[in-house]
């Protein structure tokens, strides 16, 4: 029986992952986007768009499915603590041989792993469905050199995922903060949606005027509806033109990782501070 903090966090994470496997909302977060990613290329094919390049079907499926992943993942995170609190099941965990910070950290890790699994499933489903219905060929247009080399799909997809995960993970962290603040799941869900809207408004107000490229309120602030940052990055990458928008040495490569990282760090610190101080026993 180990008793140090990492061992306890690992143990709690295993418990959280087991619980997630049984939760319908978690099943929806993982299952629905994958199902969408599977159906979208099929839908395009059935609607008679045989001429569409495979990479375009793939990018459409990935973009829409990842939008769903972000939304559902955020929603799940925003009710994760509030739900257990209202069900009175959180108290039993807190009464156990664990620290509160460990309980929240393990929950956060489990939610992020859930997000990663959902993304992997989306990619797999979209890839398989696109491959079944479409060919992946170079896009030439009128240019001398191809605009897109079919052989680079894998690299572009990997880059797209790499640029999608940090902002999405940051949004899940914000969802967890909302959940710690809210007393009931209904309030948490409403506050979560409100927070998403506020993020978008803040971003649209500040990002265009702010000269602080490294500040939090810049174009790389992760938000759900605004398409100027990570989702655009994903789409661009999936379309195979990311390297046209962002050169290999462009600062965007760093910013799209750094800004959400800072953002998630602040949200997690605030959530931990609140979770360790609030009374969850009533």
């Amino acid at each position: 029986m180990t008793s140090n903090a990492p061992a306890r966090i690992l143990r709690l994470t295993r418990i959280e992952l087991f619980k997630l496997r049984r939760q319908r909302l978690a099943q929806a977060v993982v299952g629905l986007p994958a199902a969408a990613a599977l159906l979208i290329p099929q839908g395009l094919w059935l609607s008679g768009r045989e001429g569409v390049q495979g990479v375009l079907a793939l990018s459409t499926a990935v973009e829409l499915a990842l939008l769903l992943v972000t939304f559902l993942g955020f929603l799940h995170a925003s009710v994760a603590v509030a739900w257990e609190r209202s069900e009175r099941t959180l108290r039993d965990v807190l009464a156990g041989p664990v620290r509160r910070s460990e309980v929240l950290l393990s929950r956060w890790i489990a939610l992020e792993l859930e997000l990663a699994l959902a993304v992997l499933l989306v990619l797999a489903a979209a890839g398989v469905s696109s491959l079944l219905h479409y060919r992946f060929e170079d896009i030439r247009g009128d240019a001398i050199e191809p605009l897109f080399y079919a052989g680079e799909v894998g690299r572009h997809a990997a880059l797209g995922v790499a640029y999608f995960l940090p902002p999405a993970a940051a949004l899940v962290t914000v969802g967890l903060l909302v959940s710690v603040l809210a007393a009931t799941p209904a309030v948490a869900a409403a506050a979560g949606l409100g927070a998403l809207l506020c993020l978008d408004i803040a971003k649209s107000l500040f990002s265009s005027t702010s000269g602080f490229v490294l500040g939090l309120l810049n174009a790389y602030l992760p938000s759900l509806f605004d398409r100027t940052s990570y989702l655009h990055g994903v789409t661009a990458m999936a379309n195979g033109i990311g390297d046209v928008l962002w050169a290999d040495d462009a600062p965007q490569h760093l910013l799209v990782l750094l800004v959400p990282g800072l953002y998630a760090g602040c949200a997690l610190a605030a959530a931990l501070a609140l979770f360790t101080r609030r009374d969850f026993t009533e």
Binding site: R11, I15, K19, R22, D92
Partner: peptide
């Protein structure tokens, strides 16, 4: 606790196994 509640989506056995894991 007076108003004990286990997660409703778990079975009784699963809840106890998780409680055991929590205890190390």
């Amino acid at each position: 606790f007076e108003d004990f509640a286990a997660p409703s989506y778990l079975t009784g056995r699963e809840h106890l196994v998780l409680q055991g894991l929590l205890l190390g």
